[in-house]
Design a binder for these strands. Structure first.
Length: 296
DNA sequence: CTCGGTCAAGGATAC
DNA sequence: GTATCCTTGACCGAG
């Protein structure tokens, strides 16, 4: 099955998310600050629920939540957002809806979460981000947090060791949710697979990242090992196309036929496929149309 | 109202 | 060390 990430263009004003900047916040009174943050968070969770409902209506059973639903959550030290009744209620609705509709959700911390950084303060902040998203995950019923290996400072071998060491600092609850994805510049499929096997977490294969960065290894040769890291759970993979060329790291609006074909050949009936392209759900619907045309 | 500069955060790279 | 790019869409404020 296919899924898409975050924004739903079709829903217009209810298909995207509010943000709050530090600068804006600094101009408000203490009371107004909280109001602004909470209302943005509630709106974002409400919109998430609208998108999930749209997904269900359109028989799309996989969706990635935005990682910025609770604005500035790890920046405002004394904001205990998880104790706010409106926020928690909205989270419960999402949890309930995804459970009853069978939509598979996931969460992807952004580039600032670098668990293997050589800078202790960055590691601490990364753990803070993971703790925040873990808390949110438990409230909305999300079971997977997908990250990249991170920095290559000091050489890849040391960087991988730092990742493994810092992984051990995480609570078991977070460790259980973590999955690792190969990236387009530093850590390729083979390296990420080795790490996943070493610490016992699932591997997310990103085919476009593999196209951008590989050592000539065959994906099909590694297929069974990748599946095995999921320990019986249904594996997931990522798919996008290059914007200006096959190996352009920038994501295109849609998925090319050749990339889709390759992904399907690899996935067979064993993987769910998360689309990472600019046109989100529109690209998914387009692929599905193509699929119907071909098969009927 | 519209448009463009700006935004918490890291890292890689070039100089 | 410092500047710049990567990359991202929402927002703020200048006009």
């Amino acid at each position: 099955m296919l899924g898409f990430a975050c924004i739903c263009n079709t829903l217009k004003e209810n298909g995207s998310f509010r943000t709050v900047t530090v600068k804006t916040l600094s101009k408000l009174s203490e009371e107004e600050k909280m109001k602004r943050l909470v209302s943005a968070a509630v709106d974002n969770l409400y919109n998430t629920l609208q998108i999930l409902k749209w997904c269900k209506e359109n028989n799309i059973l996989m969706y990635r939540l935005s990682s910025a639903l609770i604005p500035l959550a790890t920046y405002i030290d004394d904001w205990r957002w998880w104790e706010n009744e409106d926020i928690v209620n909205m989270c419960s609705k999402i949890k309930e809806f995804t459970a009853q509709s069978g939509i598979r959700i996931s969460l992807h911390p952004d580039q600032f979460c670098v668990l293997n950084s050589n800078r202790p303060e960055v590691v601490q902040n990364s753990i803070k981000i993971l703790e925040h998203l873990n808390k949110l995950s438990n409230l909305v019923g999300n079971k997977i947090l997908i990250i990249h290996t991170g920095s290559t400072v000091g050489g890849k071998a040391k960087a991988i060791q730092r990742f493994i060491d810092n992984f051990k600092l995480l609570t078991p609850d977070i460790q259980d949710k973590l999955a690792l994805e190969n990236d387009d510049k530093s850590f390729g499929v083979r390296e990420v697979l080795d790490i996943c096997e070493a610490i016992g977490i699932p591997m997310i294969l990103d085919i476009h990242h593999y196209n951008c960065q590989n050592e000539g290894e065959s994906l099909f040769d590694l297929r069974e090992r990748i599946i095995a890291t999921w320990k019986g759970k249904r594996p997931k993979m990522h798919l996008s196309s290059g914007k200006t060329a096959f190996t352009d790291p920038h994501h295109a609006d849609f998925i090319t036929q050749i990339d889709y074909k390759t992904a399907l050949e690899f996935a067979k009936d064993d993987f769910d496929i998360m689309l990472e392209c600019k046109q989100k759900e529109l690209a998914l619907l387009k692929l599905r149309e193509g699929e119907n045309t071909c098969s009927t």
